[in-house]
Design a protein around this nucleic acid. Structure first.
Lengths: 224, 224
DNA sequence: TCAATAGTGTCTCTTAGACAATATTGA
DNA sequence: TCAATATTGTCTAAGAGACACTATTGA
């Protein structure tokens, strides 16, 4: 069936993928290879393919698999952007997703594409992101901070085994402020005793008391 | 320009419009007049018209203006639904909006279309809403309750002048539980002293102490 | 005065924050 | 033993909830 192009908007999915590198929050940016705005940095994203995708979420998964070659452990919708003049191609809808990546998979994610990918500081206003991606990144940051402030545990950003100090550090990095160790662990015990599982292994740590290792429980979700 | 229909999804906006009628929470439903699922009750909604709408939000405003003849004072995006088989028409995206209507405009909203519109109880699981609207309604309810629980004031559901008791009642109806009068007013004073303005007028009230009337400040937003 | 609702005060209990104290390891 | 970090305990302050009290009106 052939129809008028102007009656249907272009639909994109864009992803704000966060991780923590060296105790600093980072977001993945890609350098646009094609027009419009070729050469500019942007959030990774792609166009919806109704013939391949079962829904928008799976489109986001597909796009990120294409960019990084990995499946993201967490991907959630944040909001949409829309309007008639994203670029010359006309009316568009962009659905923004928030994603988390374990810190130990950051290097593998970028691989050798260091000219096309970068882990940028989301707090330092990126000089000029393409389109409205600066605003979208802000929305994703808000969502991430809100959830952690409401005690959602960003376990998807941590390696398979982690110490509570590591977990606390990740939360601090996301929130941009220090947390009290005692308060942090007290809440953990009270609320999330079923979502975190103790592990037999112990940490090395050199000249210091070894820390207990933990892991996320099966089916853990980044809720809150 | 003519293109393949299958490459572009249909885009709908659907609206969960809440109000309070006789101390009960209500959501607006419409009886579908056309196929598919003609005769079934559904959330009001319509198809995006890129040639008319400047973005998805304005599409939602346009659709509701068409159904009710009024401009909604509050409309916010909740989430999207998407997939290949909403109905025979193929791949679709549906963007859900949450809206609030003042209780004193409920009658005007329905007008004489009582066979096509109804104010239904969103808590009583509507037997069978069309499409996935039952799930969408649940998402909108969650959002509404979350915001009020986080102390967002649903002033958009109240008439221009209202008493604090009325405001508290609306919050109670949304949350489905009683609130403490003292706690409610204490918080109001502490947090929202700049967002609510005292009004000279007093309430009638018959055989009882008259209550102070309040109104929403200019530019008030349903945040929280 | 009374009924009825508006509006305020106070007590307690839970929880968050600050910070101290104890525990465990390798050198 | 010491340095360094893990883990726990304790005190205090802020906030939420429960509930009682006072205030104001028309009849």
């Amino acid at each position: 069936m052939l129809i008028m192009r102007e009656l249907y908007p272009l639909v994109f999915v864009d992803v704000a993928l966060f991780s923590v590198v060296d105790d600093r929050l980072r977001v993945l940016l890609v350098r646009r290879a094609e027009e419009p705005l070729a050469g500019k940095w942007a959030l990774p994203g792609g166009i919806l393919k109704p013939d391949e995708d079962t829904n928008l979420l799976s489109a986001a998964h597909r796009v990120m698999r294409g960019k990084l070659g990995i499946d993201l452990p967490h991907l959630e919708e944040v909001c949409t952007a829309s309007g008639p003049k994203r670029d010359a191609r006309g009316w568009f809808i962009s659905v923004l997703y928030l994603a988390l990546l374990p810190m130990d998979r950051v290097q593998a994610a970028i691989g050798k594409k260091i000219t096309a990918l970068q882990w940028a500081d989301p707090l330092v206003l990126q000089p000029e992101l393409a389109f409205d991606h600066g605003r979208l990144l802000g929305r994703a940051m808000e969502r991430l901070q809100q959830k952690v402030a409401r005690h959602a545990l960003p376990l998807h950003m941590l390696p398979g085994k982690f110490t509570l100090t590591q977990l606390q550090r990740v939360c601090e990095v996301i929130l941009g402020r220090d947390l009290d160790k005692s308060v942090f662990r007290r809440r953990l015990k009270e609320v999330h005793s079923d979502d975190l599982v103790e592990v037999v292994g112990e940490k090395q740590g050199g000249v210091q008391r070894p820390a207990q290792l933990w892991r996320a429980a099966d089916g853990f979700q980044f809720l809150g």
